[in-house]
Each structure stands twice: as C-alpha cells, then as structure tokens.
Computed example of a mutant assay.
Amino acid sequence: MPLLGFGTWQITGDQAYDAVREALDVGYRHLDTATMYGNEAEVGRAIRDSGVPREDIFVTTKLPPSQVGKERQTIAASLAALDLDRVDLWLIHWPPSSGRQSLAAWQEFRAVRDEGLTRAIGVSNYDTAEIDALVEATGETPAVNQIRWGPALYDARMVADHRDRGVVLEGYSPFKTTNLSDRVLAGIARAHGVTPSQVVLRWHLDHGFVAIPKSATPARIRENFDVFGFSLTEDELRQLDAMAG
C-alpha cells in the first residue's frame, strides 16, 4: 500500500471523476473511497479512463456500520460501481454500536477476503481495545486502522500499540487536524522551501504513517503529491511531534 494516498470524502459527481483523474495523472497510485461517499462509480470510471494499469492502483473502500448484516450485498455493490473484480483493502468504516455486531462484520470480512473479493481487510476509527476484541475472538488482526491523524494528534502510545499489533496506522484529515499557521511548522516549511501542508504530509511519510490528503483543486492535488524531494530531520520530527502538547 503506497504511503501517500488520495482521499475522496465529500467529492462527488464530475468533480470526483476530475479529481481522481488529476490525481492519477500526477502520480497517485492509492485511492480511498467508501460506500457512504457516494462516488465509487466516478472513482471507477476515472481508473478506467486513466490508462493506468489496474494492478498499479491500490483501491480502498469501506462498509458503513448501518450495513452490518449486508456485507455481501455491500461489497458486491461497491465492486459493481467501481467496475472491479476486487478491491485491495476493505474497511469497517467505524465501529458498529455493539461489539457483537463488530465481530459479526469482521467474520464476514474474513470470508469475503478468503473468497478473493478484497486483498486485505481492516478497520477505521477503532481504538486499541476494539481491535483487540476482534483479534481475541478470531485470531485475525486488521491490516489497517484508518483514524484522524496529524502532528497535533500524535500519541506515541497509540503508535506503539499499532506497531506492536502489526496494524498499519493510516491517517485521514491530515490538514484539518493541524494548525497550518503554527510557528514551528511554518519555520520548518521555510527551511525546506515547501508549504506547511507538504511538511505535514512528509511528517506522515517519515514516520511510516499512511496519509490520505483530499482536494478537488488541481494545484493542491499536485502540491500534495510533491513531497518526495525532501525529508525531515529527527529534530524536526520531534518538534512536530510536540505539537500534540
């Protein structure tokens, strides 16, 4: 899974199609969508029209908790909309209202994975205890936990908990969770000749976190991908980690 992905939350219709086409043209090879986003068809059409080989693109979609008990219908609808034989990662979008429902969904996710409809399975917005409950009941560890994340939310214990369990930490809303006018962040950006947003994304990559920035603006889509020409020092990473207070 590429560490830098392209998020599609709140982007629908032609805007979603155009944004995903731009992202693929720029070089993104990781696309993140969800049943509740209502844009899987546009994401799939953009993939088909891009000319990028399907095997080069990592596609994630998600099951809303309201669809627990309808996992097969939901993944079938997602694959039909995306016009794909399988996705690369399927996530439970956030924990259902009860642990029993969460476990039932996880069991269905395992079966869907074993049937080849998704390469990997994971969760989103789960805490450590909720992940442990799934593992204890099934022996199956989620490949990924997608959560709100950024320097201002950095939690060394949470990072260690994910690492110890072999769960990839994937961050969404990297800019909404960060004060982009922060003095330290702005100073690091100036030192590298980049924008604060690019520093935030580089912080994710240098820590080994997956980041999925979202934008419908072509210039921002390009800017967000242009983060491979510099790296942060250990001291800069520590300064940014300290934004969490």
Results as ranks from 00 to 15, higher is better:
Arg45Ala: 14
Phe230Pro: 06
Pro64Lys: 08
Met158Asn: 13
Met1Arg: 01
Arg45His: 07
Thr35Ile: 01
Phe109Ala: 15
Glu108Asp: 14
Asp49Thr: 04
Gly229Gln: 07
Val26Met: 04
Arg110Gln: 14
Trp106Cys: 07
Ala105Ile: 11
Leu63Val: 08
Val168Tyr: 08
Ile47His: 13
Thr128Trp: 06
Gly27Asp: 12
Ala219Asp: 15
Ser98Ala: 03
Gln67Glu: 14
Val87Gln: 05
Ala143Pro: 10
Asp56Gln: 15
Val194Ser: 00
Val59Trp: 03
Thr60Tyr: 02
Gly208Glu: 07
Gly208Arg: 08
Lys62Phe: 02
Ala186Phe: 01
Thr128Asp: 15
Met1Lys: 00
Val199Met: 06
Glu42Arg: 03
Ala189Phe: 02
Pro53Ala: 08
Gly116Asp: 06
Val227Ile: 14
Glu223Phe: 13
Ser50Leu: 06
Val112Tyr: 08
Ser78Arg: 07
Phe228Met: 01
Arg119Asn: 11
Phe209Asn: 08
Ala34Glu: 06
Leu153Gln: 11
Ile131Glu: 13
Arg220Lys: 11
Ser66Gln: 14
Glu40Gln: 12
Asp127Met: 10
Leu169Gly: 00
Asn39Met: 10
Pro65Gln: 03
Ala77Asp: 12
Val112Ser: 04
Glu234Cys: 09
Gln10Lys: 15
Thr178Gly: 07
Gln73Pro: 00
Arg190His: 14
Leu91Tyr: 13
Leu82Val: 12
His204Val: 00
Leu169Ser: 10
Gln198Gly: 12
Leu134Ile: 10
Glu55His: 14
Gly27Pro: 15
Gln239Thr: 01
Tyr37Cys: 10
Pro64Met: 09
Phe225Tyr: 14
Pro218Lys: 04
Leu205Asp: 10
Asp49His: 03
Thr177Ala: 15
Pro218Cys: 06
Arg165Ile: 13
His204Ile: 00
Ala143Ser: 14
Leu103Gly: 02
